[in-house]
Design a binder for these strands. Structure first.
Lengths: 214, 214
DNA sequence: CCCGGTTTAAGTATATATACCCATAATAAA
DNA sequence: TTTATTATGGGTATATATACTTAAACCGGG
């Protein structure tokens, strides 16, 4: 970490950004820190400023971290993106890594962990915080190999959102100009794919997987 | 803000605490900043260190911010507690203010807002960020005076949690050693009290109001 | 071009939830 | 003591969701 680095912080919470910026400036006085409050703005910054490191939150308005990561990696597969997010986003681990993130940190990490992650990723390595590793291993152990390869179709996602909004299958059918029976089928597919046994579990799934906003 | 102040930051995200600490030390060089990672620890700090200002997150493990605030105010009604939390916790506004918080800030506030809030609260005034005021006013406008005076009984809360876990009324009855019909009635009361029309909305209510953990 | 997945639709049957009605006992509040 | 609330249980009916099945039309990749 001897050369000057440009670090981009992408997070919708101004206070968190400002605090982290100070923190990084304190430990890495030679670095240049820039900020974005959402994924869309981050794309602009990446093309203009060419940051060496990107610290990316996941839950953000306008464009979330997974999508932003995917697009940045599309433009530059070498981009050093480190996910920086909260507990409870477990379902995002795979999505984020799949999108091309080189590291994954939790927001309850220590500053040292952030520095270590930046160091590792700069050297072309990967970095995952202990909690992430633990969670991944626990999931592997849980059910051998049946990795939740769940992929909902766009129509299914659409229906799921309406279910969460409290609409009945009939109402959903009316809104989408399709038969109630078709919605029945989508709902059945959703139950099977998400391994839910009723509406309540379906809603919980949608929330845990960020399909709907709170 | 001429005298030395002790400020306690209560938040489960280490990075956020550390960043905010630096931020406060930068703007208020004479202040002493101490930290807690949850509500329970915060209670200890309050009795030991007697902080002048407490910046309190809401969603935390072990003991959440509402409960912690309530207990601190119980011990010392003059305690200057400022809630500091994220979007989407709208349902907490009232709970937190009811618990005795003197101010309410969002995590996407600017550092200046935090300083202003601290200043106001130190002078015995209240401080609410714009977004909070906007939301409160919007809700007032929405339905005149019918403030959500919703108070679920302990049994209803118990049933609601089980519904969210995906249990059917029959299963809930079996677990609680009561008739399925009784659960039917509790469910009906829940639907009415929360103004939900089905299970999906009930689950959403439970989540938005922190009745269940994610 | 064929194959797999998606979207569309439906038949039939059961399970569950929801909407009303009612009643009793216990408890807490006024 | 009267009143209100809660927890308990039930009758009856409809609405909705869920579990099986089959099948046609479409679309993109090998």
């Amino acid at each position: 970490m001897d050369t000057k680095k440009t670090i981009l912080i992408v997070d919708d919470h101004t206070l968190f950004r400002n605090g982290l910026k100070l923190l990084l400036q304190h430990y890495l006085p030679d670095s240049v820190i820039i900020e974005s409050s959402n994924g869309e703005d981050a794309l602009l910054r990446v093309t203009n400023k060419m940051p060496d490191i990107i610290l990316m939150d996941i839950n953000m308005p306008v464009m979330n971290g997974v999508e932003a990561t995917r697009k940045i990696i599309e433009m530059n597969p070498q981009a050093c993106i480190i996910a920086l997010t909260m507990h409870g986003d477990e379902s995002y681990y795979y999505q984020m890594i799949d999108a091309g993130a080189k590291g994954f940190l939790l927001k309850n990490s220590k500053p040292d962990d952030v520095l270590e992650a930046i160091k590792q990723v700069c050297q072309g390595k990967h970095y995952f915080s202990e909690e992430i590793m633990y969670s991944v291993i626990r999931n592997l152990n849980k059910s051998d190999a049946e990795v939740p390869d769940i992929q909902l179709s766009s129509r299914e996602t659409e229906v799921l959102k309406m279910i969460c909004a409290g609409l009945s299958n009939q109402e959903i059918g009316d809104k989408l100009f399709i038969s109630k029976r078709t919605v029945d089928n989508h709902r059945a597919s959703l139950l099977e794919k998400t391994q839910s046994k009723n509406t309540a579990q379906l809603v919980m799934y949608a929330i845990k997987n960020g399909i709907i906003e709170l």
